[in-house]
Simulated assay, not measured.
Amino acid sequence: MKVKIKWTYKSLKSTETNFLSDEMQAGQAILLVEDIERTGRAKQLTFVDSQDQPWTLKELKAYMKGIQTEPHNIKVYFDGGYDVKTRSSGLGCVIYYDQNGKSFRLRKNALVNELNSNNEAEYAALHLALKELELLDVHHLPVSIIGDSQVVINQLTGEWPCLEEELSRWADRVEDKLSQAGIKPEYKVISRKNNKEADRLASQALKNVEITSSMEIN
Score class of each variant (00 low, 15 high):
Gln25Asp: 15
Pro185Cys: 08
Glu59Ala: 15
Ile211Leu: 14
Asp22His: 00
Thr56Arg: 10
Thr86Glu: 14
Ser168Gly: 07
Lys108His: 07
Lys102Ser: 11
Asp49Tyr: 05
Val152Pro: 03
Ala205Phe: 03
Lys193Asp: 11
Leu91Tyr: 06
Ser14Gln: 15
Asp79Thr: 03
Asn118Thr: 07
Trp55Val: 07
Glu120Gly: 01
Ile67Pro: 01
Glu186Phe: 06
Trp170Gln: 10
Ala205Ile: 02
Lys85Ala: 13
Lys184Ser: 14
Glu120Trp: 03
Ser149Pro: 01
Leu130Phe: 07
Lys85Gln: 13
Arg38Ser: 13
Ser168His: 11
Ala42Leu: 06
Glu165Phe: 05
Thr15Met: 14
Ser214Tyr: 03
Arg105Ile: 10
Met24Gln: 13
Val174Lys: 06
Ile145Thr: 00
Lys4Glu: 13
Lys85Ser: 10
Leu31Asn: 11
Val189Met: 08
Lys131Pro: 00
Leu135Lys: 15
Asn116Met: 07
Gly90Ile: 13
Ile36Asp: 09
Val174Gly: 03
Gln28Pro: 00
Asp98Lys: 13
Pro185Asp: 12
Met24Ala: 08
Lys108Asp: 05
Lys193Ala: 12
Ser50Ile: 12
Phe78Asp: 12
Thr17Gly: 09
Lys65Phe: 00
Gly90Val: 12
Ile36Leu: 15
Leu106Phe: 07
Lys108Glu: 13
Leu20Arg: 06
Arg169Ser: 05
Arg87Glu: 14
Thr46Leu: 11
Ile74Thr: 05
Thr157Ala: 12
Glu186Pro: 02
Thr15Phe: 12
His140Ser: 14
Ile30Gly: 07
Lys6His: 06
Glu16Arg: 06
Gly147Phe: 02
Ser11Thr: 15
Gly40Phe: 01
Gly92Ala: 05
Glu59Asn: 11
Thr56Lys: 09
Arg41Pro: 01
Ile183Cys: 12
Lys61His: 08
Val151Gln: 10
Ala62Leu: 15
Lys4Cys: 07
Lys207Pro: 02
Pro71Phe: 03
Gly182Gln: 01
Tyr77Leu: 12
Val138His: 03
Leu32Gln: 13
Leu60Asn: 09
Glu210Ile: 13
Leu167Lys: 04
Phe104Gln: 03
Lys102Thr: 02
Ala62Met: 14
Arg173Lys: 15
Glu122Asp: 04
Thr17Arg: 15
Lys58Ile: 09
Tyr77Val: 05
Arg192Leu: 02
Leu133Gln: 08
Tyr123Arg: 00
Lys108Thr: 04
Lys6Gly: 04
Glu16Gly: 05
Glu159Leu: 11
Met64Asn: 13
Ala62Tyr: 11
Lys207Ile: 00
Asn113Val: 04
Gly182Thr: 01
Tyr97Pro: 03
Ser103Glu: 10
Ala110Lys: 15
Ser191Cys: 04
Phe78Arg: 11
Leu45Trp: 01
Lys65Trp: 02
Leu130Lys: 05
Ile153Ala: 06
Gln28Trp: 00
Ala125Gln: 09
Phe19Leu: 08
Lys193Ser: 10
Thr39Phe: 10
Gly90Arg: 14
Pro185Thr: 06
Leu135Trp: 06
His72Lys: 07
Pro71Asp: 00
Leu20Asn: 06
Leu60Lys: 10
Lys102Tyr: 05
Lys131Ala: 12
Gly80Glu: 09
Phe104Met: 05
Gln155Cys: 01
Lys13Glu: 15
Arg200Ile: 01
Ile145Val: 07
Leu31Gln: 14
Leu133Tyr: 10
Leu111Cys: 01
Leu32Thr: 02
Ala124Phe: 04
Arg169Tyr: 04
Met215Trp: 05
Arg107Tyr: 00
Asp79Val: 02
